[in-house]
Amino acid sequence: MKKIMELLSGDVSGVLSKWISLQRNDESSSLSIPEDEVVSQSTDFFKLFVRAVASGKTDINDPAWDETLTMLREVAIYRGQRGLKPAETATFVLSLKEALFEVLLEKGRSKNLLEDLWSVTVCVDKLGLFVMSIFIEKREDVIERQQEELLEVSTPVVELWDGVLALPVIGTLDSSRAQVVMEGLLDAIVQFEAKIAIIDITGVPAVDTQTAQHLLKTVTAAELMGAECYISGVRPQIAQTIVQLGLDLGGMQTKGSLMSAFQQSLNRLGLSIQKIDNKG
């Protein structure tokens, strides 16, 4: 490492410009970040890199490398957010290897050439792995967040009337989704001080034993909290499957449509809808 340092200190700007041009010429690069960003990122990073190398520590887990890794982390996040491909982000670090090799070959000519090449390789590869792990970590965060958002978005609880909530379920109710749906409804009952909750399953393609159990659980829990619960939108095919599967929906009040469930709710609250008499 000492040797590399000596070489580098001799020609810092030379290696830097070599590296930047290598990045620019890379074929895989679509370069969706501005040129001056590339230059300033590379310059800042290279300064930190030279300083870390100067410490003589080859292990990038050593505190001497902390600043370099922090910078690299920012670069990886910056590039990830701008939609750069993983290969393009990796190139940022890996092309540094080539730039360093060239300096070693041009000026080095030492007996230990092989050894020097090796230590450069090991060090830059480690940085390359680090940058990839950050990149992937960030991607996973994004995927996880999107999944959560999707789950929340697909199960909104709406207030139909003062004290009447409706939960229109669209799509298959698998276990993890059912969990989110149920918890959302029960929390909304508390939040809106609802007396009645309607679960509308018009948009549920099929009801199997598991789905039925989830529905039954939700209805029972809502009742334990002091709210009434109706299931609406039971289509004929679903009614048939329920009976054929021998599912017990005894504890549930089912309604054909959301409309009839809503009418029933108004009844329970002592309300009715009347036609306005305009002739009067």
């Binding site: 029960l186 009952i189 508390v190 659980k217 029972t220 829990a221 334990l224």
Partner: peptide
């Protein structure tokens, strides 16, 4: 009165 949602779910389970 006032049974929490989590308590109601757990009781059912």
């Amino acid at each position: 009165v006032g049974m929490r949602p989590a308590v109601a779910m757990t009781l059912v389970e």
